[in-house]
């Protein structure tokens, strides 16, 4: 008597990641540095988002060989990305045994109309969202974890802040909406009334909600946690910084003691240069990853 891949087990996996930092890595060496620094999981990639941006072209799922080498190198969970709507890539990652799949706007979308139906998979999925409607639509499709989209690979936290504030503001709005008006909100967001009622009852998203997309310093991590994130994804911010090992450890400690300025001041000292970063207004419309898959 053993039931695998239940929603409770998939959602529970994300709950076990709360308060932690998930780091993008491209090699087994980087994965070991992340594990040693206290990462709760690593995201196995061929390129970090900043390099995907720079490379251009079509960005796809990473080579399984890279993912398997990273899985071999660490004892913590390993996540990997698939293109939005590309359920065949997801089937491959599930077969490989990755612990979590990120259906990610960082890669080039494979389907402009449909996200992956995530319910039949035993492996859990995380998806990006810019507002409550996007988050709840992804949860309806079976996502067991949500993260802000932010603007990946920029090292600029402004979009992640916008998305987290927006989700929180809309949750407060739902909580204060009378029951008989919820049906209109549900319709506007394109989700079931049941799900909106659950948000009202719990006063939060029904699954864990992390911050992602542009976090590049301990202070950024603290900011996102103070805005209500359950944890932090750092993409390019660690291995594009001058001293990845120190930066990784500092972001882990800042995520834990996010509301203690003394600890934040201490861990922010002498980190070397953070990643270079991009001003959002310098991006053309086509360069904005967050508008993919809404």
């Amino acid at each position: 008597m053993k039931e695998q891949g239940t929603f409770r087990v998939k959602k529970g996996m994300a709950q076990m990641q709360k308060g932690g930092v998930i780091m993008d890595v491209t090699t087994p060496e980087q994965a070991r540095i992340a594990e040693q620094a206290g990462a709760v999981a690593v995201m196995a990639l061929e390129r970090v988002p900043a390099d995907i941006r720079a490379a251009g072209g079509v960005a796809r799922m990473a080579d399984p060989e890279i993912i398997l080498k990273i899985m071999d190198a660490v004892t913590i969970p390993v996540m990997a990305k698939v293109r939005i709507g590309h359920f065949a890539e997801a089937q491959i990652l599930e077969e490989l045994g990755v612990d979590y799949i990120d259906e990610s706007e960082v890669l080039t979308p494979a389907d402009e109309q449909f996200h992956i139906n995530k319910h039949p998979f035993k492996v859990p999925f995380v998806c990006g969202a810019r507002d409550l409607g996007e988050a709840l639509r992804r949860i309806s499709e079976g996502a067991a974890m949500i993260r802000t989209k932010g603007e990946p690979g920029t090292g600029n936290v402004v979009e992640a802040v916008r998305h987290m504030r927006r989700v929180m503001e809309q949750i407060r709005q739902v909580v204060h909406t009378p029951d008989d008006e919820l049906v209109v909100l549900a319709k506007e967001m394109g989700v079931s009334l049941e799900l909106v009622k659950e948000v009202k009852r719990e006063g939060r998203l029904p699954v864990v909600n992390f911050a992602a997309g542009g976090i590049a310093s301990p202070a950024d991590a603290s900011l996102m946690m103070q805005l209500g994130s359950d944890g932090i994804f750092v993409g390019s911010g660690i291995f594009k910084s001058q001293n990845p090992q120190v930066m990784a450890g500092a972001i882990v400690k800042a995520t834990l003691h996010y509301n203690d300025p003394a600890v934040l001041a201490e861990v922010s000292k002498g980190l070397g240069e953070a990643m270079r970063g991009l001003e959002i207004s310098s991006l053309t419309q086509a360069d904005r990853m967050q508008e993919r898959g809404i």
Binding site: V9, T75, D99
Partner: peptide, 30 residues
């Protein structure tokens, strides 16, 4: 650690505990 395998092998199963009248729900995650 991770004695049952990777996340896709995570599971639910009832657990009969010594001294308990009926099994508890066991949620096993990695």
């Amino acid at each position: 650690r991770n004695a049952f395998g990777r996340q896709k092998e995570s599971f639910e199963a009832p657990v009969a505990l010594k001294g308990f009248d009926s099994p508890v729900e066991g949620v096993f995650i990695r």
